[in-house]
Each structure stands twice: as structure tokens, then as C-alpha cells.
Design a protein around this nucleic acid. Structure first.
Length: 727
DNA sequence: GAACGCCGTGTTTTT
DNA sequence: CACGGCGTTC
């Protein structure tokens, strides 16, 4: 079916009035204030399809920006379903990916090579640290992470090192300024960019080479930006630059869901859009198609406590629904047991599936206790975020090797893997080599090739370095035109990386090898998807990749993630845990007077829930190694009493509802008393140390007796502490 | 050069 | 608590 034949009317069929307005608005600036669950994605995709079907733009004249790669892929798929494969020529990506694409083409104009490396957060901090040490600063007084955060904040505001130097105020600033300057120099010397550079350098490119800007201004007839409330100044500037000519800028967002100010996002971007574009048309989407009225009313009440916002009230036709459950637990273990118990009950007694359920928390560390309990209850789950796959040492090593093949100037990649696996090139040798490279104006890789001629190096180190250098150039030669998976496989073997891990013979090394197999698999997938694709393209794709992007709606498992990660998702059942003052709202946000953003975070979390919502809080919890006693989150108090039901599982209270004694049957409190029920006589269990065994007795107080196959011993175990789970 | 262990310290959210 | 930095030992 060609575009011309697409039935335009079908694109607005089934849309409500404001949605339809947003889709049909022909051109000019358009602000879509889209409340949670109001069909925002539908509007965006239909609008794009409509523009094309109506002849307002050709596919390659569309630039659509999303917040994550995952959102970009989804949008691509959905538009393709509407208008066919021609959708593939549209620019649909994140800001960072779009900028990277532009810079790959024109980096030379800025003095970079096109094969520049993109550093991830850890690389960036490491480089800042090196800058600080080089400058002779004490990294204890000036934590690299903090200095990096300052540099990043400046970059997000398009302040370069020179401008920063001029506005220095105080000693710390002065240090940041010096570090910033050197950091930028090193990035350039390594032919590398950090995340912020992708935006900053693109703006720079457009400012210094207006014809490049004109080119893109002309080609992007329509620009659409999703999650506009979370754009930073650099992104804002890019949109304005690109949209200046046609002024067909459509931004979609919800000021109540702005949760990234700590990353430089400026909520004013969306609040001031109508001032920036006086001719703008504004459409409000307030009908929610996701949640029950109870959930929405509670969320509305909470967010109403924020002062600086565009007023809107979500409503739904889905009906009142269930009250919100609030659970008071004794501590984090009890809280976790409650969560696990509820999930189990929903699954076995109420017909929910594990995939229907998500647990949100404020900080990643909170997932640990929960995971522990879930494993013991035999509930399958997956954690989104946290210790990320792409942050694992072995994965970063493997990618650093490839990076070095692609961009031999990259000294960060070089330093990472020059002695990994161990080849006798220690810190001392690397320091000597660095001095030599700096003095001669060489990259580390080049210097390594001349190691034999460096007087200060011990002969053994020099030989090792030359070997390394030869090996790498051999690999580089073999790499040309070879599929990425093959390059990676060859490299892992030729460098002895796999061999070294195999020699370890530990479970941990085993896991690392598995991870390496996985990354080779990812490369293979890339090769299949993009035949003839280059190593550079693969690395770029990976560098902008995050775990959330591959959150496939796979198996039937419970989803665990931070509230930040929850944005844009929806689940029939949501449990928000750790609703305590100091945890959520986070203590640091209270110090920084950033309470409104925490409240928005709460709003985001709540509005993910379709039919059932829980909050839980613990009277006491172990956090950061010490015990703390927290009050229930103020957000709980901000919900109207008639919408919630509070229960307690504190010891000695017999699991009865704290307020509303008539409301709940104590039996519902499976979580707290059910550990016993989860281990029954005859169950097969596995203990981390004693291996397989069978439950021979269950005693009150959470104790079970287990007879172990291995040595025939029978032990009494406290299920709260013993590392056992069902087999 | 590498492995181990001790000490001190900083702990939010991430494209 | 967990990690990084640093010193000691092999």
C-alpha cells in the first residue's frame, strides 16, 4: 500500500477530540501537554503518519526525538505499521543518537576524526580523575565524580571551558575549571566525546558552520520531541536552531513528569514554550486510558501540592477501582516478605500473572533484600538497571579492545586493557609509556609500538608492550571487512582473554565467560541486522545503549526497577516500596530543596499502575550499613484517606489494619506469616552450602527443619537468614 | 609485578 | 556495606 492510498480518515479514527486536534494540526509550533496515560505515543505516531499521508512532509523530512532508544524503536515500529516500510527513512532517535549521526558525518570540520569514541559515564569519571591527578590536585578533596558532575552541568548549559573559567567563583570552581580545560583537551587528543559533547559539539558545529545548520534546517520540515519536560538547555537550543526555518516544532510532554533536573533538564523549557513560540497552539490531553479513578485521584492530590506547574486534572472512564493499599512493615525484610506474599497471592488466587506486576523503589540498593526474598519464594523476576550488563568489567574490556582497533588514539581504552589479561605491564611501565607518549606527541598505541626504544622501560615490559602492539595491529588488519562477531571472537582468543578466564576455574570466571558469549551474540545479532555494517557503527550503537532499551516484554516475570526507570511504562499492578522520609523523598533531595521533583517522581510511579497500587514503608531499615528509623513518607499523608487502606505487619499487632479494622481480613496478610506456608514438609530445597535437601518439619517463628542429602544431616534453619530456596 | 588485606570514606536518580 | 586507595608481602 502506498502512502497516497493510506486512508487519512483512518488515522484519526477512535481518537478523542484533543488527540485529534494534535494529530491534525497542520503546521506551526504545537505544544501537547499530555498527562500520564493519555495516549501520548498514539498521538505522536498518528501525527507523523498523518503528516506524511496528508503530504505535509516526506518521511526523510521528519525528525522525531525520543527519550530512550527503546522508545525510538517502538515509535518506528508503530509508524511502520501505519504507513509501511518507508517509515524507515525517518530520523527517529534520541538526541544523543541523532547528534552522533550528524557528527559522524561532519566531525572533521571540528577537528575530530569521524571514528571518534563515545565515552560512557565510568570512562568520563576516570578521565576526570586523571586530569585532577595530572594537575596535582588531591582527589580526596576534589572527588572526580563531583568535579565531573560540575563539568557535565556546565556542558548541558552550553558553557565551554573558557566561559567557565571566566565565571569561576571560589576555590572549588577554580579546580573544576582547570580540570574542565584539561579534560576537554584529553578528550580531543583521544578523539573521544562524552555524552554531553554529542550535544555541545553539534551546537558548536551549527554555530561555526551555518551552512551545515541550513542543510539540516531545510531537510527537517517537521520536528517532534517527546518527553520535552526532560530536555536540557543544549537540547533546547538544538531544537530551536533546527526548527527556526520551518517552525514546525511539535513538543510533547508533561511538566508533572519532569524528573531529570539533576541531569540538567530544565522544566522551564516546557513551561515557557508558549512564550518561545507565541503563535503556538496548545493541546491538553487529560483523559487517561490507563488507570482507575482512585489511582488518578490520589496522584492528582499529591501533585497538587506542587506550585510551579500547568494545571491539569486527569480523569478516566475506567471507573473507581480498588483502594490503594498502604503497608506498614517492621523492617525491610518484613516489607520484602509482604511484597513477595502479595505477589504470590495475586498469582495463585487472583489470576494475575507475574508479568503484570512491577515493584518500584527509589534507589537501586533497595532491590537486594527484595531479590533475596523473591528467590526464596520461588518468584521469577528481572531487575532493570542496577549493575548493568554493559558496565561489567569483562564487557567493558571486550569493547575497549574493539574500541582500540577502531580508534587507536583512545588512551582510555588502551589503559583499560593493556594489562588485561595480565601480561606483565604494570602501573610503572604504563606511567613510563605515558611520559614518553606525551613527550613525543604520540598516542599510547603508537608509543607501545616503539617500546624497544624507550630507555626507562624494563626489557621485559618493553617486550610485552611490543608484543601487545603487534598483536593489535595484526587484529586490526584482519578486522577489515570482517563481521563484528568474528572480530570479537578472534580478539578474545588471540589476546588470551578467554584463556586467562578459563584458567581461573572459578564460578565467577565462568559467569564472565558467559557474559562474553552474550556480547559476541549481541555482535552477531548486529551483523545479521546490518550486513556489511562497520565496527564503528556497532560500537556507536552499543555506547548509546542502556539496559532499559532491551527490556523486552519477555517472560512471565515480576519487574523490579527504580522509579526513574519506570517512566513511560505501565503495569496492571504496581508496588512502590520504601515510602519513607529520607528514602522517598530522598534525604538528599530534602537538603537540596528539591521536594517538588521527588513528588513528580511519586506521581510518575503511581500513574504507571493500571488497576492496583500499593505503597509500603518500613519503621526501621538498614541502609548504607546503619540502622535508621524513618517516618512514613509525606506522600502517603498527601493522599485522601478515603482512597487508601492502611495495614500494618509490625510485630505484636497481629497484622490487623492500623486504621480501618473492618477493612481487611487478617488472612490477607499472607506476606508476614506465610513464610511457613511457603516451605511445607516434603518440599525439596537447595541450600547454598549444604546443597539439596528435603523439608522434614515446619515450626512457628519461621524455622524449618531440613534433612540434607549430601551428608544426611538434619538442621533447623531460620528461613529469614539461611540461604535456602525451593528446588 | 601481583595479590592480599587493612583502613577510611561516601553512598540518588542516568541518556 | 562496599569499594577504592594504599601499604605489605611474596
Amino acid at each position: 500500500m502506498s502512502i497516497n492510498q493510506t486512508n487519512i480518515a483512518s488515522l484519526v479514527e477512535g481518537l478523542n477530540q484533543p488527540q485529534r486536534l494534535a494529530v491534525e494540526q497542520a503546521g506551526g509550533p504545537l505544544l501537547v501537554l499530555a498527562g500520564a496515560g493519555s495516549g501520548k505515543t498514539r498521538v505522536l505516531t498518528h501525527r507523523v503518519a498523518y503528516l506524511i499521508a496528508a503530504g505535509a512532509a516526506r518521511p526523510h523530512e521528519i525528525l522525531a526525538i525520543t527519550f530512550t532508544n527503546k522508545a525510538a524503536n517502538e515509535m518506528k515500529e508503530r509508524i511502520e505499521a501505519l504507513i509501511g516500510p518507508i517509515a524507515r527513512t525517518m530520523w527517529i532517535s534520541t538526541f544523543h543518537a541523532a547528534c552522533a549521526r550528524i557528527l559522524r558525518r561532519d566531525a572533521q570540520l571540528l577537528g575530530y576524526q569521524r571514528n571518534f569514541t563515545i565515552y560512557d559515564a565510568a570512562d568520563q569519571v576516570r578521565l576526570v580523575k586523571r586530569c585532577l591527578s595530572d594537575l596535582g590536585y588531591d582527589v580526596k578533596r576534589f572527588p572526580p565524580k563531583g568535579v565531573h558532575a560540575n563539568i557535565s552541568a556546565a556542558k548541558n548549559k552550553l558553557i565551554d571551558a573558557n566561559e567557565f573559567a571566566e565565571m569561576v567563583d571560589g576555590f572549588f570552581d577554580d579546580t573544576v575549571s582547570k580540570a574542565y580545560e584539561l579534560y576537554q583537551k584529553k578528550l580531543f587528543a583521544n578523539n573521544a566525546m562524552d555524552f554531553d559533547d554529542l550535544l555541545l559539539r553539534t551546537v558548536d558545529l551549527f554555530r561555526r558552520f551555518p551552512e551545515r545548520l541550513e542543510h539540516y534546517q531545510n531537510s527537517f520540515r517537521h520536528i517532534l520531541v517527546d518527553e520535552y519536560q526532560d530536555t536540557n538547555h543544549a537540547q533546547y537550543t538544538l531544537v530551536n536552531m533546527l526548527g527556526q526555518l520551518h517552525r514546525n516544532v511539535c513538543v510533547v510532554g508533561d511538566d508533572d513528569q519532569s524528573i531529570y533536573s539533576w541531569r540538567g533538564a530544565d522544566i522551564r523549557n516546557i513551561l515557557d514554550f508558549e512564550q518561545d513560540y507565541p503563535e503556538a497552539v496548545t493541546v491538553k490531553l487529560e483523559q487517561n486510558y490507563r488507570s482507575t479513578q482512585t489511582i488518578l485521584s490520589a496522584a492528582n492530590c499529591i501533585i497538587a501540592n506542587n506550585r510551579d506547574r500547568k494545571n491539569k486534572e486527569l480523569w478516566t472512564a475506567l471507573g473507581q477501582g480498588e483502594t490503594i493499599q498502604i503497608m506498614e512493615a517492621e523492617d525491610e525484610h518484613s516489607e520484602a516478605r509482604f511484597v513477595a506474599g502479595e505477589i504470590s497471592r495475586m498469582k495463585h488466587e487472583e489470576g494475575f500473572s507475574y508479568g503484570d506486576v512491577a515493584v518500584f523503589y527509589r534507589v537501586n540498593a533497595q532491590s537486594r533484600v527484595l531479590e533475596d526474598i523473591l528467590v526464596r519464594y520461588g518468584i521469577p523476576y528481572r531487575v532493570v538497571g542496577g549493575t548493568k550488563f554493559y558496565e561489567r568489567a569483562e564487557i567493558k574490556d571486550a569493547l575497549a579492545y574493539l574500541q582500540l582497533l577502531e580508534n587507536p588514539a583512545d588512551s582510555v581504552a588502551f589503559a583499560r586493557i593493556v594489562n588485561s589479561p595480565k601480561r606483565g605491564i604494570g602501573i610503572a611501565s604504563v606511567a613510563t609509556l605515558t611520559r614518553y607518549a606525551d613527550a613525543e606527541g604520540l598516542s599510547m598505541m603508537e608509543a607501545a609500538g616503539q617500546a624497544a626504544g624507550i630507555a626507562d622501560l624494563r626489557p621485559a615490559s618493553a617486550r610485552a608492550l611490543e608484543d601487545f602492539s603487534h598483536r593489535m595491529s595484526e587484529l586490526a588488519e584482519a578486522a577489515a571487512g570482517t563481521p563484528v562477531a568474528e572480530i570479537m571472537d578472534e580478539m578474545l582468543n588471540a589476546t588470551g582473554y578467554v584463556e586467562a578466564l578459563q584458567a581461573e576455574r572459578t564460578i565467577e570466571a565462568e559467569g564472565r565467560l558467559e557474559n562474553l558469549m552474550e556480547i559476541v551474540g549481541v555482535a552477531g545479532e548486529y551483523d545479521r541486522r546490518a550486513p556489511g555494517g562497520s565496527l564503528g557503527d556497532f560500537l556507536q550503537e552499543i555506547s548509546l545503549y542502556t539496559d532499559i532499551d532491551q527490556l523486552a516484554e519477555e517472560k512471565e516475570v515480576v519487574t523490579l526497577m527504580t522509579l526513574h526507570n519506570a517512566k513511560g511504562l505501565e503495569f496492571p499492578v504496581v508496588l512502590i516500596i520504601g515510602a519513607e522520609e529520607g528514602v522517598f523523598p530522598h534525604s538528599r533531595s530534602l537538603e537540596e530543596q528539591n521536594l517538588e521533583e521527588e513528588r513528580r517522581l511519586c506521581y510518575v510511579g503511581m500513574t504507571r499502575a493500571m488497576s492496583r497500587l500499593y505503597f509500603s514503608f518500613a519503621v526501621t531499615r538498614n541502609l548504607y550499613g546503619s540502622r535508621s528509623y524513618n517516618m512514613a513518607s509525606r506522600f502517603i499523608a498527601e493522599m485522601p484517606e478515603d482512597l487508601v487502606e492502611v495495614r500494618t505487619a509490625r510485630a505484636g499487632r497481629d497484622f490487623r489494619p492500623a486504621h480501618d479494622a473492618a477493612g481487611a481480613s487478617p488472612a490477607a496478610f499472607i506476606g508476614e506469616k506465610d513464610p511457613d506456608a511457603f516451605f511445607r514438609v516434603g518440599d525439596n530445597v537447595i541450600h547454598a552450602a549444604f546443597g539439596k535437601g528435603k523439608v522434614t518439619g515446619v515450626e512457628p517463628g519461621g524455622t524449618v527443619a531440613v534433612k540434607f542429602d549430601l551428608d544426611g544431616s538434619e538442621r533447623k534453619l531460620m528461613i529469614d537468614y539461611a540461604p535456602i530456596r525451593k528446588a
